[in-house]
Design a protein around this nucleic acid. Structure first.
Lengths: 179, 179, 179, 179
DNA sequence: GATGAATGAGACTTCATTCAT
DNA sequence: AATGAATGAAGTCTCATTCAT
């Protein structure tokens, strides 16, 4: 009967939003930039998201959801703690690299930092439970490690990201393997 | 004619900037807000800082410098590693609490996150050196811990900050005291 | 194929337009609001009316036509001037109350006020002719009274409309009954 | 010390606003049009008025205040009712002619029509009190006349305004002179 | 040097209208 | 003929910065 809402278009918008919010931060990012990158008219953004804030939250949610799903998938395999912790570490760092722009965007949204705090708790809980055999992997310790890694990878200049990942991975592996 | 009165004004502006950038973040903060809080006219800000960005960088620098100075003072006392590490931890958390608004502001300035990264390295180096006796206090580990603590305290809702400090302090003490 | 269903739709649209233009005024009313109320898609409005302006004129015309028809019906009964004048007054005020939203809408369309002016003349002429026996009911006086009543009822807050009608009715009856 | 707020500028803005709101109505008028006509930058309007609505209300208030002042000045002369009523009529019509654009603007602001209603009452009261000797000049009658005249003059096409004034003046004089 | 009114670019958002389906 | 997603022009308002005083 008419042009129907386009699942694809929503995804394209979200992807563009992740990219632009990540590069510019919530405030500097403009709706026009996002629309241009998504290949739609500015008005079209408002067909899928009520306003700029909603689009931002949509982008952040999308990334966290994906990340949690990935984490759970790894844990579901039920390997021994040492093995899954390594898998998780690899997965997490890889994701952080891939999502670098958005993580920066999330962090730069000062008025949404509280959302992150809560999510970090959930993540730390999930991981520490599945790793109860390891000496250093308590819930509280986990929170600090995860936060630290997140922050280090969000703040490193993009060109240095691979180097940073190596550094972080090295330290964490050493900690995990501590007797 | 002495330059004293002008330096006063510059300090007043910087203090106001720290407060306002901290509360609002880089983008939301307005030059007028800062001028009002400093008790000067908007135009006056431009006598002391080239533009908004320069004022922001000035505010961040000021805070880091203070923090480094405090850290060095503690290390200069030359206590044994275990003692100074506890002192540092107390000092750092206290500062983070006091500077909560600005730390949030710094973090929310996505386009300046790289500045933080470099500073974190210096800080971690300084601390780890002075603590070379402790098993877990390597430079690399330190970076992650410091980043994690910084991030956790920056993202916690302000009303929960004391609770968060207790949690973080507890974990870190346990890590430091690990055999 | 009959045109019946389409005429139905046109009427539904017109009715919705009267309601929405009346409530919101020409500028604030949106084509989407009208379409929603009429139970059609926005695009459909353009099958029946060239654009928003044409739809507005259509709505106003419709109301005036109805009002004229009602007025003529009363005059056609050929009662004596005093009787029909009272009947007209009652009818007119009742209509104004029922059409309150649209009358406000008409009045608020500054760029169409001239249309009203011409219609007022026709109405005053029609009424004054049929009332030539009454001393105060000249064409010119009629115009002023009708305009005044229209305006008072259009500008009164809706909750006070009954009270306003009573006031207006009282004054006019007194004027008509003047010796 | 700096460019000081300019009484003149506020008046220039108000005058421009009266002109533009009158010509275009509240919604069609743009802040840019008003700024251009006043010879200032768009942003300057916001130094003197909080937003478009406030500017509109400012313009309307200004005109009503002037009008009341003029009316009271005439009544203060204490002439006999017949004389002052004629003076008032002349003054009122002259003002309506001069303020034609704004009166249209006021009327077209559907969401402010209630303000007019209250003002009309005050005006009718003021006039009817001062005219208690005249047979047709009761408060209630006055309200209708004033409203009618206001509306007729607001809705007449501008080119016909002199003709309309003559018509209205003629009818009212005849009513006032009724035995 | 200080002031703060003035500037004007640019942001978000709305919505009349179009047109592929 | 009907639909409604898409368009994009245009509007209001903000605010960093300038500059006359």
């Amino acid at each position: 009967m008419s042009r129907q809402p386009d699942e694809d278009k929503q995804q394209r918008i979200l992807k563009a939003a992740i990219e632009v919010f990540g590069t510019q931060g919530l405030e500097r990012a403009t709706m026009k930039d996002i629309a241009d990158l998504a290949g739609v008219a500015p008005g079209t953004l408002y067909t899928y998201f009520a306003d700029k804030e909603a689009l931002f939250v949509g982008a952040v949610d999308r990334v966290w959801d994906d990340f949690f799903a990935g984490t759970e998938a790894i844990l579901a395999k039920g390997s021994d703690p040492r093995t899954s912790s390594k898998a998780l570490l690899g997965y997490g760092l890889e994701m952080l690299k891939a999502l670098y722009p958005l993580v920066r965007g999330m962090i730069s949204a000062a008025n949404r930092l509280d959302l992150m705090h809560a999510r970090l708790d959930s993540l730390a809980l999930l991981i520490s439970k599945s790793m109860s055999g390891l000496p250093n992997a308590t819930f509280e310790t986990m929170r600090i490690w995860i936060s630290g890694v997140l922050f280090l990878l969000a703040t490193v200049p993009h060109k240095d990201i691979d180097h940073e990942i190596d550094r972080v991975k090295g330290s964490l592996l050493r900690l995990l393997e501590a007797p």
